[in-house]
Computed example of a mutant assay.
Amino acid sequence: NKGTGLFSMGSCKGEKLIESGPYLNFKGLYYKATEWPRFNDGDFSIDITTWRLDSLRMETQENRIKLLTEGRYGGQRFLNADGREYGFDRVSVRFEVTIYPDGRFTTAYQIYNPPAYLCCEAGIRYILSPEIKKYEFLRKALYSCYPEDHIGREKGTAWFYRADACEQELEETYRKPPVFPWSYDEKDFILRGCDDTVHGTNDFRASRENLIYACASSVQGVAGIAVYSDGTGLTLRMGLARDEDSYEGEEIAMNLNHVLYYDLGSGSLPARQGDMAWGNYTYAEKILQANYENTVEMYLRKK
């Protein structure tokens, strides 16, 4: 799309797989060690709907096409629980998508001026067809053996709908004991209330760290969108696009992250205080430097 610099469709074997992208996926916390050395409860994400194109250029080479896109995401301003204003100015990004004749394409991205706050996720996002309802995966797991329905397992198939995973309809109702594993929960009554709607199973929405391979497709599809990595540093996280930010619709967001951090408490700053200060250290905290860059390799392919 020459107006946005983004893809408006990606298909294989007659099946539509990609709706749009690439986008920047960036989630963070309003906490800056140099200015406010204690926990505060303000998280944020860059809203992909604020994307504006600055330039688009195409290069045709011997066996590939390269698309060079530059643009920006709008800045945001918020108040945290203490009444302090936090936010960031517009974020400028460069995407370089290289397309090969065998269905392979790489997406390199460069963030010129990342928000100067704790980064919880940084990577790229593609919006996939709403028909995408499962993905197969292989990754380097922490342990060598897991229960078959455990979200930390090394390999398997993650289903959006519990009925497809269990091959039968199983009711999920507030204040009724479930008859299926937690990994197949599609709702979150604690966070979203007793009338919550389906967001996809916990297994489908789980972050898959140290990814080696994943292929997302429809339930009966003959084609899929696949991701390849070396098992050291790429994390896949799938979910409804409308659960990410102000995007509307039933499309699926495929987030491919090179930075991952969950704030479960004191982290690397033991003096921090607040509701989550009881948690354990999980990952090193990270504030992205200017011109951060990375690359993802993907395929549109027959399954």
Results as ranks from 00 to 15, higher is better:
Asp196Pro: 02
Thr197Leu: 09
Cys166Ile: 06
Tyr184His: 11
Asp185Glu: 13
Ile190Gln: 09
Tyr146Val: 03
Asp195Trp: 11
Phe160Cys: 02
Trp159Asp: 01
Ala163Lys: 15
Glu131Leu: 03
Tyr126Ser: 02
Ile124Pro: 14
Tyr184Leu: 10
Leu128Asn: 05
Lys134Ala: 05
Pro181Met: 00
Lys140Asp: 11
Pro147Ser: 02
Phe189Val: 09
Asp149Ile: 01
Glu186Val: 02
Cys194Asp: 06
Glu136Pro: 03
Ser183Gly: 00
Leu138Lys: 14
Ser183Asn: 05
Ile190Gly: 07
Glu171Val: 14
Lys176Ile: 09
Tyr184Gln: 09
Phe180Glu: 04
Gly123Gln: 07
Lys134Gly: 08
Lys140Glu: 14
Ser183Glu: 08
Val198Met: 04
Gly152Leu: 09
Asp188Pro: 06
Gly123Pro: 08
Glu169His: 13
Thr173Arg: 15
Ala163Glu: 13
Glu136Ile: 05
Glu169Ala: 15
Glu154Gln: 15
Trp182Asp: 10
Trp159Ala: 00
Gly156Val: 03
Ser183Phe: 05
Lys133Leu: 04
Leu138Asn: 13
Ser183Arg: 06
Phe189Tyr: 15
Leu128Gln: 08
Cys145Ala: 12
Lys155Thr: 06
His150Trp: 05
Gln168Phe: 08
Asp195Leu: 09
Tyr126Met: 07
Asp188Trp: 01
Cys145Leu: 07
Glu172Val: 01
Ser144Asp: 11
Cys166Phe: 10
Ser129Pro: 06
Ile151Leu: 01
Ile190Asn: 08
Glu154Asn: 05
Leu170Ser: 12
Glu131Arg: 09
Cys166Asn: 05
Gly152Gln: 07
Glu171Thr: 13
Cys194Val: 11
Ala122Met: 10
Ile124Gly: 10
Trp182Ile: 08
Glu167Thr: 09
Thr173Val: 07
Cys120Gln: 15
Lys133Gln: 12
Thr157Val: 14
Thr197Glu: 10
Ile132Val: 14
Lys176Cys: 02
Leu142Val: 11
Leu142Ala: 15
Ile127Asp: 08
Leu142Phe: 12
Ser183Asp: 01
Glu169Trp: 13
Lys133Cys: 04
Tyr174His: 15
Pro178His: 14
Lys155Tyr: 07
Ile127Glu: 09
Glu167His: 14
Lys187Val: 11
Cys145Met: 07
Leu138Thr: 11
Ala165Tyr: 09
Thr197His: 09
Thr197Asn: 06
Ser144His: 10
